[in-house]
Write a protein that binds this DNA or RNA. Structure first.
Lengths: 218, 218
DNA sequence: ATAATTTTTTAGACACATCTAAATTTTTAT
DNA sequence: ATAAAAATTTAGATGTGTCTAAAAAATTAT
């Protein structure tokens, strides 16, 4: 069984492994774990012994099948708890992260299966991120940045790439939420910002950076 | 802020302090924490520095006002989570303890207040234990002699009317302690003695006099 | 290709929570 | 009152996760 800390490292390594097929570097892990490279080295040795990752000195880290399964379970728990917090306890979606970060480490299969059932077996969390099922399977949806969609074509906000509270607050302030229907009305040449229509009602401007971090589906 | 382990010690010390006004002994703590006396000594020194308990070498431990407030918050969280698990997730009463034992350490005031509201501000948990409110106030439950409780209804040992060493020794010998869960299984016509079940495990007989001096709550 | 820079690892330390074994203090029994 | 027993504390060790400083390896720039 993995410790609280080991689970967090594994989750970070999983995230860094996504997309890129290259090995994950010590410094990258240190960065997103807010710790020092020396500490990362110590930890990856441990995770390597436990067969959660492959580790080669001075080269980097690759996640194993077992490690990936573990990471997916932690992510499943995190996203189910976020869903619970927002849908049942009326948290706003920028308040949930820190709490879910703790709840994801509660050890009980029974708990998580019953929670899943209580929530009606959701497939995505309040941020639009997919929730792995109990076998670790993720239902993939084709998401792309709002900035890459054509004008006047309606899309639905599914998730964000940058989940920082400040970005979430910004979205909330301009009236964007997961599930919102958005249409690009006009691209501003000058700074790349977009004028968009939310739910056919509200016209707002979103910066180029904002539109790049907002993932939508058709 | 207290660590996971410190909170557990404090909770144990609070439980042992209830009823008796005497200091809590190192060995008593070691017993219910399933650890060694030496470890307890180390921990009580730490809790003493943090002003959670008073500690005097070779004498014992008394809980401070601050310590009591902390312990009550942990108990509040534990009982709210147990209520959630049973009422919302359909756990059975004997499945909840280990999970609640973990959930009680989640740090978030917002979470616990919202959970409280979600559950409709319950005043007692599924086992009938009172839930402290957000100020740590417990709605007092009536204590009565075990002899006056109905058959097959679980009660908890709170205190004794006759505190003589011989009575306490007798209780200790048959396996009764403050906090124990007791159920009357049968009343013996002949001499008024009772067959009781302690903590769902141990069946013993207690005399009529004994049952009259043992105060319990629901 | 060699020097400078960056990244990564090792070495040694610390705080936490635990343990065993030995020493000390308190309690109990004769 | 003194010896034996029990309870408690201290001393010293272990495992986890962290850190800083220094050494080693890899990358880059000249």
């Amino acid at each position: 069984m993995l410790s609280f800390t080991e689970e967090n490292y594994l989750k970070a390594i999983y995230r860094l492994s996504e997309g890129g097929s290259k090995a994950v570097l010590t410094n990258e892990i240190a960065e997103i774990m807010s710790t020092k490279a020396a500490s990362v080295t110590d930890m990856v040795k441990k995770l390597s012994v436990k067969d959660m990752i492959g580790y080669e000195k001075y080269y980097g880290v690759t996640i194993t099948r077992r490690g990936m399964a573990e990471a997916l379970m932690v992510i499943r728990k995190h996203r189910l708890w976020e869903t619970f917090l927002v849908e049942k306890l009326n948290f706003s979606w920028d308040e949930v992260h820190d709490v879910a970060e703790q709840l994801e480490h509660i050890q009980s299969n029974l708990l998580i299966e019953k929670l899943d059932e209580f929530l009606g077996f959701p497939t995505s969390d309040p941020h639009g991120h997919p929730i792995p099922d109990k076998n670790g399977k993720i239902q993939e949806v084709r998401q792309r940045p709002l900035s890459e969609t054509p004008l006047n074509k309606k899309h639905f906000v599914r998730s964000v790439t940058d989940g920082t509270p400040s970005f979430l607050k910004y979205l909330s302030k301009i009236g964007i939420y997961i599930g919102a229907g958005v249409v690009i009305l006009e691209k501003v040449e000058f700074d790349g910002s977009l004028e968009i229509l939310i739910d056919g009602k509200k016209k707002v401007f979103i910066s180029r950076d904002g539109a790049q971090n907002l993932l939508v589906t058709e």
